[in-house]
Design a protein around this nucleic acid. Structure first.
Length: 190
DNA sequence: CGTCGGATAATCT
DNA sequence: GATTATCCGACGA
């Protein structure tokens, strides 16, 4: 479970879907070609959030999983809102269109929107209970979920690796979409 | 339910 | 200059 405490209140999410990115051997990882300003957190100690901006408008959050120097992380792709649904809904500025609870954190960018995560939280220590962004263990006695796996969503390279994992049957898991290369047409494009 | 194209800018080569 | 770990609205069935 991941929660973020802000002035708006507390929003908590039970993660239903993740993807793994292994920097040194994975061509799809942001860390594959070495350290840059953007991915520096991936090379740091585990338990910290790596937040990046993409497609000109979206944020996505990862959790670093390996010791310092080994840039591996999991992308948090989707979750179920377990607290603060009203605050999460208020962060959505879609033109008056109603949003179901299921959709609020379905997809990596929506999850960040529901939790109000942006680059200010890049590097946050999610294992520190004093951090505004932190993880909490699953409640005692909750049954272990059945985990399914398959290819990652939207990646153009290493598309054969089945490094996406999700809670089998969970309705908040995002739909699969293969990568579609698309070129932006320039003024001279035909 | 499905496919399709547009939006939009940081980041990297 | 090209690419992108995405989402949304429009449209068809």
């Amino acid at each position: 479970m991941l929660e973020h405490e802000t002035a708006d209140g507390l929003v908590a999410v039970e993660i239903s879907e993740v993807e793994s990115y292994a920097g040194e051997i994975d061509p799809a990882s942001h860390a594959y070609r070495g350290r840059t300003q953007r991915n520096a957190v991936m090379f740091g100690p585990p338990g910290h959030a790596y937040v990046y901006f993409t497609y000109g408008m979206h944020f996505c959050v990862n959790l670093v999983c390996q010791p310092e120097g080994t840039p591996e992380a999991v992308l948090l792709r989707a979750g179920r809102i377990v607290a603060g649904e009203e605050a999460a809904r208020a962060r959505r500025t879609r033109h008056g269109r109603p949003v179901t609870a299921r959709e609020l954190a379905r997809g990596p960018a929506r999850l960040c929107q529901a939790l109000d995560i942006d680059r200010d939280l890049d590097g946050a220590d999610v294992c520190d209970p004093a951090s505004p962004l932190r993880i909490r263990p699953a409640s005692q006695g909750s049954p272990a979920p059945v985990i399914a796996h398959g290819p990652r969503v939207g990646v153009s390279r290493a598309a054969d690796l089945e490094w996406r994992f999700w809670r089998d049957g969970d309705p908040t898991v995002s739909p699969y979409r293969p990568h579609v290369p698309r070129r932006r047409l320039g003024p001279t494009g035909t």
